[in-house]
Design a protein around this nucleic acid. Structure first.
Lengths: 162, 162
DNA sequence: GGAATTAAGGATATAGAATATCCGCAAAAC
DNA sequence: GTTTTGCGGATATTCTATATCCTTAATTCC
């Protein structure tokens, strides 16, 4: 059970977009260079963010991506689900129905108990991600990343933002 | 991010083994028939449980599997990790190191903040699973499964348990 | 208007993991 | 000694993640 690497990419890209000044865009090319990622493939992850309406896009030179709403109104689950999908990590195939002792026409009143427990854990995972806002990440980074790197990165981005 | 179907199989098999009388064993063949699963492949899942020391095995006719400890001393995480592995669902590839603005020899004091948050969610998932004991599942099933099916299944198992 | 740049989406290729089967071995039961 | 069992290795198949390429339409700038 491993998340796609695109999830990591999307989270880092959103953290960068969160630092963009109002109304400016950053291109796939710039985001790929900044993170050392394959441009074409990263583009797919960004398209997922776009389809989930987490980012706005614009075409042409000086085009690219920006957040569709403020970084305090976007949480980790939004981003993770945009890339990874909303399907639960545990899928119940109802193997209890294969029990040879089952009377014909036996009808279960509830979903399988095993599945319900696994889904509960899945919800706990989602709850944790839902509670962390993108702005929280930016806050942590701004404290932890050494000021010189923080600032030079910001300048690097601004130079390329349309 | 999808768990292997073997996780579902292992959980259901453990629930059955939990109902086995002291000192008796149930074979892969019986467990596969009961759940309508491919015997050879289910065997791999049971081997994982055995390697994790969750079950004891014995060879020969009347051989098979039984729980290595009581069902109240085995939790869901034990079983899930035995089959799925203990690796975290989010793997950090440290793409922050690819930042072209990084001074040579820059050294991070902590793991990436993105990873730490993702790992926190992973821990919440594991915590939930850790809190559910196998005996809890058996308790739920004994209340929910219709008594006639519950009993006939129990008899079916006993007839095949060595 | 024309050239360059961009996101979007479709088609395709590659790598690796999940799923599944088969075989030979050693231990235990009878 | 025969049968049954778990175990491990080898192999095949299917599916997903990863990755690249190409076309199209929108936008910017000259």
């Amino acid at each position: 059970m491993i998340l796609k690497s695109q999830v990591e990419w999307a989270l880092h890209c959103c953290a960068i977009l969160a630092g963009l000044p109002e109304g400016r865009y950053l291109s796939t090319k710039a985001l790929a260079e900044l993170h050392g990622l394959p441009k074409e493939y990263l583009s797919k992850a960004l398209q997922s963010l776009s389809q989930a309406a987490l980012v706005d896009t614009t075409l042409g030179p000086s085009g690219g991506y920006r957040l569709a709403r403020s970084s305090s109104e976007i949480n980790f689950l939004d981003i993770v689900e945009a890339v990874e999908g909303k399907a639960r990590s545990f899928t119940c195939t109802n193997i209890r129905e294969n029990n040879p002792c089952r009377p014909a026409g036996y009808c279960d009143s509830k979903p399988c108990a095993v599945a319900r427990i696994m889904w509960e854990a899945d919800e706990a995972w989602r709850d944790t991600l839902r509670r962390v806002r993108l702005s929280d990440l930016v806050g942590i980074l701004s404290e932890e990343v050494r000021p010189d790197l923080w600032q030079s990165t910001f300048e690097w981005v601004l130079k390329r933002a349309g």
